[in-house]
Computed example of a mutant assay.
Amino acid sequence: MNTRSDFAIIVVAAGRGSRAGDGIPKQYRKLAGKPLLGHTLDALMRAAPGAAIIPVIHKDDLDLYESSAASSQAPSQLRRPVFGGATRQASVRLGLEAAAGQVPEPELILIHDAARLFVSDTLVTSAVAAAKSYGAAVPGATVSDTIKEIDAEGFVTATPPRRGLRAVQTPQAFRFELILAAHRAAAAKGILDLTDDAAVAEWAGHRVHVFAGEDANMKVTTMQDLRTAEMQLLRGLVDIRTGQGYDVHAFGPGDHVWLGGLKIAHDHGLVGHSDADVLSHAITDALLGALAEGDIGSHFPPSDPQWRGAASKIFLAAAAVKVRARGGAIAHIDATVVCERPKLGPHRDEIRASIARIVDIPLERVAIKATTSERLGFTGREEGIASLAIATIRLPL
């Protein structure tokens, strides 16, 4: 689609997503290694590379939003986030007011739900064209199920014919002045619970055109929807790779060792240019190996004084960022620590959780094992610790 400057896109991301189960709001949940909102922003940026994007978020979610925005492909398109209101209608109105303050003010506005991450270039193009032609337009998918109207006791009162029914989606598209005036008028009259922007335009007396939606343009609402969306994303990451990593460090003076970003008390320390986190080093090399991008020393050379005493979680996090920069996701990490002491069993889950945080993947995608070498070799003589790691990643072709 050609670069445009005459329309903007409001992305509504202020909801709590309670139907998606416990945890952070669904728009910030990770799908294939990236927040759902990040996928949505990327889709809109691909479809409309010249459009300003105005996110509307909950006031408590600024940190979550900034992390999602940082994962997007073209953050320069993003405008300062707007804090939403108590309802979706209120949030959209606040986004429209922010757009009204832009120079130049947009001629057209698209309003899109953050939870629809599979919005296509074609759908955005159709929405813009429909708004130009009709002033108010929404995508609608045909309904395949028979729809029943029921009364308060659950009895059927009517069966509307399917040919006249549409399941309405976003992005909904309008002449900017039309929908801004409609939202302002509705708010002034105390009409606050309309469920979409087409309903606001209808309330204000405007005819709303319905153009063809897309079945693929699903809205993520439930936990099952999250799983379905992730599977859809992973189908596009068909280049499955593995990398291996191996590292050793000798014991020296000290009262602790670092393993997987976790500080563990011990009667010796590990000797190295950085903090000598042998486990993090092995996993870092495994990730770099899967990317075919050298090893930890080529990215963070020990000859460079800035890395002296550095926390190895910096190296591990950087390797994970490299995977995401290639459009990929970390599928699994499996690592083994070889030593006689310290005993890692009591710390295993904490180490797993630390690594999961550093590389930003779910805990269930990190496996850590510990073994001795039966008193054989340098680890058996308690001269140091060794670690082996395998990382599995998925990349697009």
Rank of each mutant, 00 (worst) to 15 (best):
A216F: 05
E214N: 02
A182E: 01
R207C: 08
A212V: 05
D196T: 11
F176W: 01
L180S: 11
A187M: 09
G190F: 00
A199L: 09
G205Y: 08
T195L: 14
A182K: 00
A185H: 03
A198R: 10
F176R: 00
H206L: 10
A186F: 01
A198E: 10
K219E: 15
V220D: 12
F211Y: 13
D196H: 14
V208M: 10
D215V: 08
E177K: 11
L180T: 08
L194Q: 03
T195R: 14
E177L: 12
M218D: 13
K219T: 14
A201W: 03
M218E: 12
H183R: 04
T195K: 14
T195D: 15
V208L: 10
V220I: 15
N217K: 04
L180A: 13
L194H: 05
R207E: 15
M218G: 03
D196R: 03
E214C: 01
L194T: 09
A182I: 05
A185R: 10
A182T: 00
D197Q: 14
A181M: 04
A181W: 04
W203I: 02
D215R: 12
E202C: 03
H206D: 07
V210I: 15
I191T: 14
L178Q: 06
M218C: 06
I179E: 00
R207H: 12
N217G: 07
D196P: 07
V210A: 07
V208W: 01
V210M: 04
A216S: 12
